[in-house]
Design a protein around this nucleic acid. Structure first.
Lengths: 155, 155
DNA sequence: GTACGTGCAAAAATTTTGCTTTAAT
DNA sequence: ATTAAAGCAAAATTTTTGCACGTAC
């Protein structure tokens, strides 16, 4: 379930980016793609293909899971969304393009976003540049989230 | 195939750590576990379960893939090895305990290690501490490795 | 009208599990 | 002798694919 939602201005920016990305990549504007992207653009929970499928079925009850898989892969190739580095069994997706990082709870597998402007300012070591051409850099934290800590502490 | 190998002193340190971790966790010292751990301790290629299976079969031709899966999971629970944040379809493992980070080539899926001492020195933002208790922090880079860049450039 | 996208079903790939046999302590 | 681990086979889970039909441009 999705409690926190994305602010309107961020959501609208994402939708506009989606529309231009479709045009630029020659993607047809299908009902399925719009509904799937709208769900992602509003999401803060880094949903898996199955989570997206479950939610978009409210709008398109006949949509198939493989369409969701194909669509997510397509969006990823266009740079519209990212696969999250979280290896929680299933691939998880994120429509947030603003630089941010992830805290993965090893207990409940929830993925939390956080910003870390200090990180953005630190230069990569030479070692990294020697390996190849860096396109994306991100920090990943693992730990136990507050919710799980509280649950464990209460008995 | 494995080109670079781990220096002897690092390898020996890992093996000693393995032996004490088995004692501490009440794990029996089976032939399979030793062979699997030795392979990981020598590895620099962040192998998947299947890669490990393929290699340890040289020593134990009858070893089954599910034993490898079970053993890797066991080692991970003991903190002897880590699952790498790389979502390359399969889970990838790493026996390196010294702080290091990963560069994942989006082309060939190779995972390269690098050290980044500057990163270790930067304090986490308050936002991260508010989410929960951080147990592990790491940077993940994505990009195209030199090998793939060269291959693409040569035609 | 044409090319691309979707739905369906089936398969592929990866990982997990129940049960029996084997081996370590 | 006990108890954990290995091996086998089967299942569960996640993701991909071929083909026929439908839809956006």
């Amino acid at each position: 379930m999705q409690l926190i939602t994305v602010p309107d201005d961020v959501y609208n920016r994402r939708i506009r980016r989606f529309e231009s990305a479709c045009r630029d990549n020659g993607l047809k504007m299908t009902h399925q793609r719009m509904v799937i992207f709208r769900d992602l653009a509003r999401s803060t929970d880094h949903p898996s293909a199955e989570m997206v499928h479950g939610r978009v079925r409210r709008d398109i009850p006949t949509i198939s899971l493989d369409t969701v898989y194909r669509t997510l892969t397509t969006f990823e190739k266009c740079g519209l969304i990212f696969r999250v580095q979280a290896e929680a069994g299933q691939a998880r997706y994120d429509a947030g393009l603003e630089p941010h990082h992830h805290f993965v709870c090893t207990e409940c597998k929830t993925i939390y976003d956080f910003v870390w402007s200090e990180f953005e300012r630190v230069a990569l070591p030479d070692a990294a540049g020697n390996i190849g051409h860096v396109q994306e850099k991100q920090a990943v934290l693992k730990g136990i989230c507050r919710k799980c800590l509280d649950r464990a502490g209460s008995h």
